Simulated assay, not measured.
Amino acid sequence: MMVEYTLFPLCEYAVTVRFADCIDEAVNEVVHGTAARLEAEKKEGIEEIVPAFSSLTIYYDPLVIDYIGIGAWLRKNIRRSEQAARRLARTVVIPVCYGGEFGPDLSDVARFHGMTENEVVTLHSTGRYRVYMIGFSPGFAYLGGLSPRLATPRRPVPRTKVPAGSVGIAGGQTGVYPLATPGGWQLIGRTPLKLFDPRRAEPSLLAAGDIVEFQPIDAKEFARWREEHD
């Protein structure tokens, strides 16, 4: 099967392979399938392969391999029909305490859509979300699959510090802040789970291709979870 792509230099030590200009599950499957094949055929000078929504970036050592060499390596491997083995997608259930101090923007999101807060929580927590990529900060998963009925603009003024574990909405996406960072997403809840922990063998709880489901919990369950797992 011929895979259509566009190759262009990103800088003197990186090139980007673009498959499309949209956020689409089928395209994302091509991205990660291709990344897996390239990892399996990695050659000297290739340092890192980073998949994104609809593209992947290859970082390389320009003293070992150049742009032309990268192009030849891609032509040899990117269009092969055989599929490299990929990790089966996991389903990760993330408990979330919605609203109150944990979700200060829940009422604004509900008002924006003419819903009650409970309707927003029900719609958000019954969704099934795909991890398209990890980026922005360590362990931050960009999730696709948010209901269009919940798509909400970012806050006009970002917060200087968003607590770790905060669950937010920005445009047509939802996500969880793994670390305390600035951010402008609409915060509707918080999870007691640690999305990123450098002490773990796999520091990021989520990986591209995972499926995420959110499970509502109350404040007592949140506190109990924290006490048991901290």
Score class of each variant (00 low, 15 high):
residue 153 P to S: 02
residue 11 C to M: 10
residue 42 K to M: 06
residue 4 E to D: 15
residue 219 A to N: 02
residue 109 V to L: 05
residue 171 G to N: 10
residue 108 D to S: 11
residue 136 F to D: 01
residue 202 E to Y: 06
residue 151 A to G: 11
residue 212 V to G: 02
residue 37 R to L: 13
residue 155 R to W: 12
residue 162 V to L: 09
residue 200 R to F: 12
residue 197 D to R: 09
residue 56 L to T: 02
residue 118 N to K: 11
residue 30 V to L: 13
residue 147 S to R: 10
residue 77 N to H: 15
residue 92 V to L: 13
residue 218 D to R: 05
residue 228 E to D: 12
residue 76 K to M: 12
residue 95 P to R: 06
residue 175 G to V: 05
residue 78 I to R: 00
residue 110 A to Q: 04
residue 74 L to A: 10
residue 41 E to R: 00
residue 91 T to P: 09
residue 144 G to Q: 05
residue 217 I to E: 07
residue 53 F to L: 09
residue 79 R to E: 15
residue 27 V to M: 09
residue 59 Y to N: 08
residue 223 A to I: 07
residue 147 S to T: 12
residue 16 T to M: 14
residue 89 A to H: 14
residue 221 E to D: 14
residue 24 D to V: 03
residue 19 F to R: 00
residue 96 V to W: 05
residue 91 T to D: 11
residue 20 A to Q: 08
residue 44 E to G: 04
residue 230 D to Q: 13
residue 19 F to I: 01
residue 105 D to M: 01
residue 95 P to A: 10
residue 60 Y to V: 00
residue 35 A to D: 03
residue 199 R to F: 07
residue 79 R to A: 14
residue 227 E to D: 12
residue 213 E to T: 13
residue 94 I to Y: 13
residue 130 R to G: 02
residue 122 T to A: 11
residue 127 G to M: 04
residue 156 P to D: 10
residue 46 I to T: 02
residue 146 L to N: 04
residue 147 S to Y: 12
residue 15 V to S: 11
residue 186 Q to W: 07
residue 154 R to D: 03
residue 84 A to Y: 12
residue 30 V to T: 15
